[in-house]
Design a protein around this nucleic acid. Sequence first.
DNA 1: AAATAAACAGAAATAATTTCTATTTAGGAG
DNA 2: CTCCTAAATAGAAATTATTTCTGTTTATTT
Lengths: 137, 137
Amino acid sequence: MSKIHFDRLAASAIKDTPRRRAIISFFEKSTGAKDPETVWEHLKTKFRRCGLPGVYRNLEQMVNAGILVRVQREGRKRYYGLCPGCGHMHHHHIVCVKCGKIGEMPECTLFKGRTLGGFKIVDHFIQLSGICPECGK
Amino acid sequence: MSKIHFDRLAASAIKDTPRRRAIISFFEKSTGAKDPETVWEHLKTKFRRCGLPGVYRNLEQMVNAGILVRVQREGRKRYYGLCPGCGHMHHHHIVCVKCGKIGEMPECTLFKGRTLGGFKIVDHFIQLSGICPECGK
DNA sequence: AAATAAACAGAAATAATTTCTATTTAGGAG
DNA sequence: CTCCTAAATAGAAATTATTTCTGTTTATTT
C-alpha cells in the first residue's frame, strides 16, 4: 500500500497526529468518498474519546493540506476522499456514482485567462460523475 | 423587458400562478442569484400569506421547468437565478463573484461519451466564477 | 522542565432545509 | 354555474448538517 498520503501529511503544515493517520488509513482501506459522520463512526472504534467537530475540522484541514478532496454527491452532505493526485497542482475529480471512488483530471487549462459572454473567468469548478473500472465490470 | 421566462412558465408542466410570476419578476427586476430566504422576503411584501417551504418548492420546480438555475456561491446556502439560455439544451453557467449575475456557456460537449482514467463519464457539472461586464468596469 | 501552540472533546447553538397536515385555489366535467 | 379533483400553499414542527464555544489534553519548542 502506497504511503503517499502519510508522506503528504508529514510534509504539510499541519501536524502528523494519530487521528489524522487514522483518517488516511480509513480512506485507504475502504472505497470511495465518505461523509464526516461515517469517518467519525470509524474513528470512534479507534479512539475512546472522539468528537464530531474535530472530524469536521480535520477533514477541512486535510483538504487544505492537499491530502483529501471534497467532492459533490447526491444529497446535502459533504463528502471527502483521498486526493489521488500530486496534491498541489490545479486539477479536478471524477466520482463514481456507484461506489464513490475518486479519480482525477490532471492539468486542466480549459478556462485559464478566458472570457465567456463578457464575463472574465476567475475560477472554475468541474465535477465529473462516472462509473469507475470496477463498477463498470 | 423580455417576457421569455413568463413564456417558459406558460409552456411548462407546472401552473402559471401569481406566486411564480412574482418570482420571475423579482429576478428580472434585480440583479444576480438569490437565496431562498431573500426571495421569500420579497414575496412577503407582495402576498399577505406566504411560506418559506413554498418558496423552496417553487424554486426547485422552476429549475426543473428550465426557468431558473441553481448556482453555487460561497457559503452553504443555495442560490437561484433566471436561466439565461433556452432552457432545454444542456449547458452550464457562470456566476459573477461580485454581483451574482448569471451568464452561460452554451453547447458543452466537452465530456460527452468520454472516458477518463478508466472512469466512464456519465455526467458533469461545471460552475464558472467570473466578473461580469458591469462589475468589471 | 516550563512555556507555547496546536489539537481536541463535548455541549450547545445555529441555520438551512424538509416533512407533515390541513387549507385554499384553480381548472375541468357535467 | 356547481361539483370534483388535483395542484398549490401556509404554518408549524422536525430534521440534520455544520459551527461555535469553552475548557482540557497533547505535543513541540526553548
